[in-house]
């Protein structure tokens, strides 16, 4: 029996979404048959805390915590933590975010900066509880935990309904290994929410392998949202995507000042000498946005 089928069956019986129905991100593997009932039980348990209180042995949970599926790993690892260090587990489960200087919330507690916190944070995210800002902050904390997070971030994106949280999830993938990040980042470039698309193209622009997304970045130059276009232009420059030259030149007349600014900077990075000869710069030198005018003056004065 396919592992994912078992999981789906167990989840369905428990009335919760299965990994498969939730987007198929969780990779299916053939689990040892002896573990299948335990895996079912683990995924069907309402919480990791509840699983910790079940008769499942530590050895079984340890085996499940090494599974290929991120949900099961998180569930089993969290359950183990609940058994071994309940104070820590409870702390992570209940911790409230701090209010930062600009009023945003963020998890700053040092206890979260530990790999053991990662599965517990995944569990919190999976629970779906908490305000949007708090859940977005959980994603950041997950990323900074240094634990097992990237597959979870990719997987959570598929089922997350809150755009702010999805944006944070794709931002986290800026640091994820290519195989994990690529499918989700590619999918997120077509997200219905502009903020998510902007976060995605921003993340791509900051990835060392971002050039591999060149065609997607070029397509984003034409996005209807100015933030997406601005980050796409920036990505072209940062990643040295020379084939994006014409697309970025077209953005020099964009109605958004931020886009024009990023376009000038991108062209300067790609080929400052060539950029300085562009006739479009004459008008931009008197751009109503001071930042754009300064950027053009800097380019022409090189």
């Amino acid at each position: 029996m396919s592992w994912i089928l078992v999981a789906a069956l167990g989840a369905a019986l428990a009335g919760t979404p299965s990994p498969a129905s939730a987007g198929g991100i969780d990779p299916g593997v053939d689990a040892p048959s002896a573990l299948v009932p335990a895996a079912n039980a683990a995924l069907a348990a309402p919480t990791a805390h509840a699983l910790a209180g079940s008769p499942v042995s530590d050895a079984t949970l340890t085996a499940l915590a090494d599974d290929a599926g991120w949900r099961l790993r998180a569930r089993a690892a969290s359950a183990l933590t609940w058994r071994r260090d309940p104070a820590f587990a409870e702390g992570v489960a209940l911790l409230a975010p701090a209010t930062t200087r600009n009023g945003a919330v963020r998890f700053t507690d040092r206890r979260l900066r530990a790999p053991e916190a990662a599965p517990l944070l995944v569990e919190r995210l999976l629970s779906g509880t908490g305000a949007s800002a708090e859940r977005a902050a959980l994603v950041e904390a997950l990323r900074l935990s240094g634990g097992d997070w990237s597959e979870a971030a990719a997987g959570l994106y598929a089922t997350e309904t809150d755009a702010a949280v999805r944006a944070q999830l794709v931002s986290a993938l800026q640091d994820a290994e290519a195989a994990v990040a690529e499918p989700t980042l590619t999918r997120a470039l077509a997200d219905a929410d502009a903020g998510v698309r902007a976060a995605t193209v921003r993340a791509i622009g900051a990835r060392n392998d971002g050039a591999g997304y060149a065609s997607a970045v070029y397509a984003s130059l034409d996005d209807k949202d100015p933030d997406v276009r601005a980050y796409a232009a920036r990505a072209v420059g940062w990643l040295g995507l020379t084939d994006g030259w014409d697309g970025v030149v077209a953005l020099l007349s964009d109605p958004s000042a931020e886009v024009r600014l990023k376009a000038v900077a991108a062209l300067e990075r790609l080929d400052a000498g060539r950029a300085a000869t562009l006739p479009e710069l004459e008008a931009l030198a008197a751009d109503p946005d001071a930042r754009v005018a300064r950027a053009v003056a800097r380019l022409l004065g090189r």
Partner: peptide, 18 residues
């Protein structure tokens, strides 16, 4: 972290210097 420095260069040019 090349992205970090690209970002800092942009901040310097677009805001800190002005």
């Amino acid at each position: 972290d090349q992205a970090l420095w690209a970002s800092n260069a942009d901040m310097q040019a677009d805001y800190l210097d002005p």
